[in-house]
Design a protein around this nucleic acid. Structure first.
Lengths: 211, 211
DNA sequence: GTCTATAAGCGGATAGAC
DNA sequence: GTCTATCCGCTTATAGAC
């Protein structure tokens, strides 16, 4: 009874499982980022953690389950680090610059989303639904921010919130591919900022590195 | 001597090889588009053509060779269909709309480039160099077009040709991911056109479907 | 030009011991 | 919680027959 293998928290019982799962997710991120889901192997993940295949599969019963856990874990970390005030349009858009800046310091995460989102365009991919929902959510979020900015008179004439949201999201995604291919080819932060400055009346600040 | 298995042309000798190679490339496009290079299998390509594995490898000695041939073939077709006047900036930009329009009618090709460009961000991928060169080329081409448009007074104030070229290319790539995930989520042609209209003084036409 | 046969390896997943 | 052993399928590529 008391030996039920449930994870309770970092300080609670079964802390070892917690720590192992953490290590597994970190390794899985690297592997799926580098090789995608289909070509990335459980074996390589297990190797990095110092586990056997079967040992890994004890924690995540299938490869697909591991992928989903990895994506959810990334989302948890991201929403913990970046608590965005979705009610303030201007600060939400400002946040897109900050996110880009942060992304340039964690190429692994960028690679993960870049590789997987492309791979997941086929309907039978285990993360297909995840990315559809994710994009729906982001587009709506950013659309709302632009609408608010527009209501405050912060947008130039003729800027359409919905389309502009789609453009901003697409722009950020497209920049990532070019940046991953060759880090010197584009500066993502500079380009996102420049794009936003063509939309907005009061220009956006670059992220303050000394704050 | 006379039996050297060289391909000479559609009407010349060895026309059978020509036709087979054509069929192979068509099948390879679909397979690599759907599953990428790493997960796409020679076996599936061979199956679609109605060939054995070994039969396929007679025409393309390795999997990587098949990939490169597939990409080159696509480029040949594209440059044949779209003979762009690189000297005329405005028509080159106009052409980006036409290309988008055409892409919406051949999702397989879009999928190919989307999937492979993401996969090829790792340096050891056989198409890594291909995509680096391709993006360098496209960025330069589009930058030149915007510069010329600017010199003619066709661009709004504060538009920087190089950055704008990067933005347009990124935008088109990013749109493709969202469109492949869900065809109803975005209309690529509409969005490209809207974006261009925010840059330019004389608005661009939508592609003329009756021309 | 295409085949069969075969090599040699990696893939995910399961059963059961400890 | 982790292991070993094992199954079975799929992979690219080669050798040699037809």
């Amino acid at each position: 009874m008391a030996t039920t293998p449930k994870t309770r928290g970092p300080r609670g019982p079964y802390a070892k499982t917690r720590a192992t799962k953490q290590k597994i997710l970190d390794a899985a991120l690297l592997v799926f980022a580098e090789s995608g889901f289909r070509s990335g192997s459980l074996r390589e993940v297990a190797e990095r953690v110092g586990l056997s295949d079967a040992g890994l599969l004890h924690h995540y019963p299938t490869k697909a389950a591991l992928l989903i856990a990895t994506l959810q874990h990334r989302d948890d970390v991201a929403t913990r680090d970046f608590h965005v005030d979705t009610a303030d349009g201007r600060s939400l858009i400002q946040n897109m610059i900050d996110i880009t800046e942060r992304n340039m310091n964690q190429p692994g995460v960028v690679e993960l989303y870049c590789t997987l989102s492309a791979e997941a365009t086929t309907p039978d991919h285990p993360a297909h639904g995840y990315f559809i929902e994710r994009y729906d959510w982001v587009r709506d979020l950013v659309t709302g921010a632009f609408k608010q900015l527009q209501a405050e008179g912060g947008l130039r004439d003729g800027i359409e919130p919905r389309s502009t949201a789609i453009h901003l999201v697409s722009l950020m995604d497209g920049l990532q591919v070019q940046w991953l291919l060759n880090r010197d080819s584009v500066d993502m932060t500079v380009e996102v900022k420049r794009y936003l400055d063509t939309l907005v009346i009061e220009p956006f600040r670059a992220p303050d590195r000394l704050a």
